[in-house]
Design a protein around this nucleic acid. Structure first.
Lengths: 221, 221
DNA sequence: GTCAATAATTTTGTATACAAGAATTGCGAT
DNA sequence: ATCGCAATTCTTGTATACAAAATTATTGAC
């Protein structure tokens, strides 16, 4: 479908993105073009294009004639993004309730089963993979390709913050039962119910809120 | 808030964007870098950055080593985008119902009045301006800055196709009454009602669908 | 005459060079 | 010694130069 990883600047963009996620570059830090260029053994040109892409996706901020700075979302923006994610997924669920195929329902069930097995086996990577798949199926089954893309975009953006959420004691098991509630509502064709179930599943509330805030403390030096 | 129009490449991006919207560049047409560079009396560099920005926002497609091509949304994608817009605005309305300020409600009323006046005066530009304002207030009153930005993004993207919608006989008057229904629901704190009202307002359905399709015919050579 | 292979040309992607604006440092004055 | 101003240095933004790849054109064979 998409023209696969194109040019060097795309690889660099992904690399820098990863470095921002894993904390190599702290919030507010200036990303020096020449420094990055030498680090990647390229000229400034592809680095600039990479930074431009990251600026577009909101990961860095470009001040005119000043440089680009890592822009980690603050607590407020993060809450806002999770709220939008919850609402977008709720829309997916509501639409999917009337559009979903039997094959997709079966797929959801199977994915949930594998996800459950991963939880029991303490297989964190497995859990992430199957969880991603679960949400991906939901986006797809909204029957709206544009919505699907938008959801994937925001999902990707929130990924580094989602990891934190799952550190919570017993959160995985609760998350699984929420998944099952969602599938049940979808199976019953209950759009409103599915929407509400996934909203509750994604929303940052209660204990999740405090943990999210705690995970941001180090950034607030 | 944001550092205002920064570099030449941004101006060029906006210019090309406008040219795509107003039909200077047809769907599928290749955008030649050197041609654009000479047209804007700059080098290829800022043109390339501009095209990169447009590619990120989905207005053009970049094939690797092949060039960038104008990518107008087809009928299906357009319907999908309008559906997402309707859902996003519905979310705004639902959230705004419990978060909106009295001042904003007053503002909505006044904006609607000016909008109505523009309709009576056959003032198309005035109508557009006040309509934009109406929706902008709604986005803002969702109380979610991130959601607001996302709505503005999609709204901008759909703008050229919205013009068509309003050509419909009596559509302006109907649109106004829909605005009033939305405000009434917000005033009553009826989130679900406001959401439903704006969904119906934005959604492409009935006659609107046919007109939208008709407006795309010329593109399908 | 048509098709294929190869050469020429065009065009994208990257590197380098240059110009203009911002930050910093050094100097002078109070 | 501190504050203000100016000159230098550094960085970004733009232009140009070069390299690799893709398209097109040309030539040759069947």
């Amino acid at each position: 479908m998409r023209p696969m990883e194109r040019k060097r600047s795309d690889l660099i963009a992904d690399a820098i993105e990863g470095m921002i996620f894993d904390g190599t570059f702290a919030d507010g830090e200036r990303l020096d073009e020449v420094q990055l260029a030498t680090r990647f053994s390229v000229s400034r040109t592809p680095v600039r294009e990479a930074l431009l892409r990251l600026a577009q996706s909101g990961l860095v901020e470009q001040l005119p004639r000043r440089g680009v700075f890592v822009r980690q979302p603050g607590p407020v923006e993060l809450i806002e993004m999770f709220e939008v994610m919850a609402e977008l997924e709720a829309v997916c669920a509501r639409l999917a309730a009337s559009r979903i195929t039997d094959a997709a329902l079966k797929d959801l069930h199977e994915t949930n089963a594998r996800c459950n097995a991963a939880v029991e086996a303490q297989d964190a990577d497995g859990y992430y993979r199957e969880n991603e798949r679960f949400h991906g199926i939901l986006y797809r089954q909204s029957g709206n390709g544009f919505l699907e893309q938008e959801c994937l975009r925001l999902h990707r953006r929130l990924q580094p913050f989602r990891r934190v959420q799952l550190r919570l004691r017993g959160r995985l098991r609760q998350s699984m039962s929420e998944h099952e509630a969602i599938v049940a509502a979808l199976e019953a064709g209950d759009g409103a119910g599915a929407a509400e179930a996934i909203r509750a599943h994604v929303a940052v509330q209660g204990e999740k809120f405090h943990h999210l805030m705690a995970s941001l403390k180090p950034a607030a030096e």
